[in-house]
Write a protein that binds this DNA or RNA. Structure first.
Ligand SMILES: [Zn+2]
Ligand SMILES: [Zn+2]
Ligand SMILES: [Zn+2]
Ligand SMILES: [Zn+2]
Lengths: 136, 136
DNA sequence: CTTGACCTTGGACTATACTCCACCCTTTAT
DNA sequence: ATAAAGGGTGGAGTATAGTCCAAGGTCAAG
């Protein structure tokens, strides 16, 4: 049961271009090609694209998915420790980004709260005022 | 008191390239030029770059800063309401992004918690297993 | 035999925010 | 006079994740 690119694309819910893009970046390669050059994907490839999309879903970048796939294909030589480590690192990164965004949100809230929000000209607006002063 | 690009750059703590980049994108334009074409920045420009950097600090994109600067220069015709609205919209966006990242973090934590993290081969790893199954 | 659906490649374009480079000109200091 | 420091332009490159397009080849049905 081999699938042409369109079939795999609609099965996975991505565009044919996306599959070719992933291929160019080493994430998924068709099992074979027809004589005329059509890509043919095997069941392993279906599994693989599913892996990629699931990993994307939980926030991994394509680059990280590349590394994850390497863990996946060499899982005989890798330990659970390695895999878990990888995920835990990502959690750290996400946490850090979460903190930054939280700080941003607080700053924005402070700005917003200080503004009267009225209908008079914004010449006296505390938001505009606060932004034009170098903070920090 | 006119500043050449290098002076403003070191004053603001950005590179000359960044100032030229901002100029190309309509964020800041030197007041004048010397006969030889050197950019000359006025005090208003210093204030402007300070505004840009402060806005960046609180998470606005350059595009949004562009819009903010328009509010700023036309503040006689704008109301506090307009400015506050703009900031509140951004808070909404940040909040949404925050929610997405939180969900990602939870997914990653679930993955991590299910993995034994041991030193045996990762052939049985629940993380790799979970990722290769299409979730949702 | 032709039409339409599907496939191929390569390359351009999107958004975001710069950075670096080459190549050349100006200004300042010794 | 000359060298170093600083400035100018245009264009390419980086990372991220694709999308869109043109020009052409292939395949099944009517
Ligand atoms: Zn007000
Ligand atoms: Zn206000
Ligand atoms: Zn295990
Ligand atoms: Zn495991």
């Amino acid at each position: 049961m081999m699938l042409k690119i369109g079939a795999l694309a609609s099965l996975a819910g991505v565009s044919r271009d996306t599959l070719r893009f992933y291929e160019k970046h080493g994430l998924i390669t068709p099992d074979t090609r027809t004589d005329s050059g059509y890509r043919l994907y095997s069941e392993t490839d279906v599994y693989r694209i599913s892996f990629i999309l699931s990993a994307k879903e939980v926030g991994f970048t394509l680059n990280e998915i590349h590394q994850l796939l390497e863990l996946e294909v060499t899982k005989d030589d890798k330990s659970c420790h390695d895999v878990k480590q990888f995920v835990d690192n990502k959690i750290q990164v996400v946490n850090q980004r979460l903190g930054e965004m939280e700080k941003i949100k607080q700053s924005l809230k402070t700005l917003s709260n200080a503004c009267c929000g009225g209908d008079e000209p914004a010449t006296h607006c505390t938001i505009l005022g606060a932004l034009s002063v170098q903070n920090r």
